[in-house]
């Protein structure tokens, strides 16, 4: 794994007053976020709250209509997506999973822009070690893979770049719980290596288990930000979680942190 610096300049990712429009309809209406290296920031919210648009805006895949995105204090707001990618801000989109016509190995190689041939090989090997299931299907065109495998490929591909900052969209969507458990482990490990991870989830359970901080997004605005425990309490107060659920959540939180 590419080690990540924890130098004083590495202040993490900062999003200030970001605005993203969906055609003429505002999807993100001025969002502030901050995530330090080694932390996982969870974003939760109902459908249509602007979660994916927010991530797309940070990654530069979607044009933003205002606000700033800073990585380690460098303003990237005007950079095209590929420059942000080279700087280490990589998005794993829930809807766009793999490059379907490429094989698994080629998908991984596509994440190796700017690296030497040997380096690409070495990192691809690391990824295949990380996801042994993919090694079995190395040369299969990736459109033939199952949803879970495709998700593994897209995460592995993002890791190939040695990304400083991973933007993960709906990690658990449509995946079998076993695979979700495996992926959450990987994500935790990535953060522990000093990466910045922003995780969008609709399942509060998974999110509370993984994240250090959680922001609740509604109608394109941050409604609440806090530590995981605070968020769980807030969710309970607002009727999203029942007291009985709380017990389970508490158990999960204590088991991981």
């Amino acid at each position: 794994m590419a080690p990540t610096t924890n130098s004083p300049e590495a202040t993490g990712l900062e999003v200030r007053d970001l605005k993203v429009f969906h055609g003429v309809v505002p999807a993100v209406r001025g969002v502030d976020l901050e995530c330090k290296p080694g932390q996982i920031l969870g974003i939760v919210g109902p459908n249509g709250a602007g979660k994916t648009s927010l991530l797309s805006g940070i990654a530069g895949v979607k044009k933003t209509s205002g606000g700033h995105v800073l990585l380690d204090g460098r303003d990237m707001s005007r950079w095209p997506a590929y420059r942000r990618g080279q700087a280490g801000v990589v998005m794993v989109n829930e809807r766009r999973r793999v490059f379907p016509s490429l094989s698994v190995r080629e998908n991984l190689a596509a994440g190796g822009w700017g690296l030497g041939k040997a380096e690409v090989e070495a990192r691809a090997e690391q990824m295949l070690d990380l996801f042994p299931r993919l090694r079995e299907r190395e040369d299969v065109p990736s459109f033939r893979l199952s949803g879970g495998e495709q998700r593994m490929v897209s995460i592995a591909r993002a890791l190939m770049t040695g990304a400083r900052c991973l933007l993960l969209d709906e990690l658990s969507l449509g995946l079998a719980p076993r695979i979700v458990a495996q992926l959450t482990e990987v994500v935790r490990q990535l953060a522990d290596e000093g990466r910045i991870v922003i995780l969008v989830e609709q399942y509060v359970g998974v999110l509370l288990q993984l994240a250090d901080h959680v922001s609740i997004l509604e109608r394109g605005r941050v409604k609440f930000t806090g530590q995981t425990h605070e968020t769980a309490l807030w969710l309970q107060e607002h009727g999203y979680l029942k007291p009985t659920d709380m017990a389970v959540v508490e158990k999960k939180i204590t088991s991981t942190h």
Binding site: V61, A81, Y82, Q86, V90, F99, N107, W113, T161
Partner: peptide, 17 residues
């Protein structure tokens, strides 16, 4: 081929589209 399959994803991986 990556750009052909999905330009946005290719860009976010740092490939200068």
């Amino acid at each position: 081929r990556a750009i052909y399959d999905d330009g946005d994803s290719a860009a976010t991986l740092g490939i200068p589209l």
